[in-house]
Amino acid sequence: MPTYEVALMLRSMPKPELKTTLKRISHAIFDRGGIIRNIENLGHRPMPYKTSAHGLVHREANYFVFKIDTATKAVSDLKEEYSRDVDVIRQRVFKCEESSSNNCTLEEELLPPAYRDEVKKMIEVGKTQVNRFTYKFKYNSGLDYYPFQK
């Protein structure tokens, strides 16, 4: 089962209600055979832009991030269920990517253009192409008319 991050924005409500909502959300995950790795609460704060959901305009939201392991097929099902939930304003699901260690290539990128690999490659490609600026149409090519606009 791949790991997903479900970013949820819940409408502002008193704490006991929030508790039941979170329980409902997590039970939806458990019912589909998923597990919750981690729940992050990013707090209650004003949204950068207003969002209308379920016939109401929301300007503040409770931000939660669930880190869950669930079957890939269950994700769309979960999204559909949360979209029907009145307390969920907005929801996004992202796949967790494992961190790949790569070395910094800034030094190569700051070289002068002639020393950069991508520029060298471009020049090589350019040599195989017809140079539009110096290309001259040959009249002995079998065509008895000039095929381009003069």
């Binding site: 950068p48 832009y49 969002t51 939201a61 996004r92 790569n102 290539t105 800034l106």
Partner: peptide, 26 residues
């Protein structure tokens, strides 16, 4: 920004994610 290519790409995609999640304004 003076970032390398990979980091700049990651930053851009993460900013787009954050804006979409209403963490950050557009």
């Amino acid at each position: 920004t003076g970032l390398c290519k990979t980091k700049q790409e990651q930053v851009e995609s993460e900013i787009k994610k954050a804006q979409n999640c209403a963490y950050m304004p557009y």
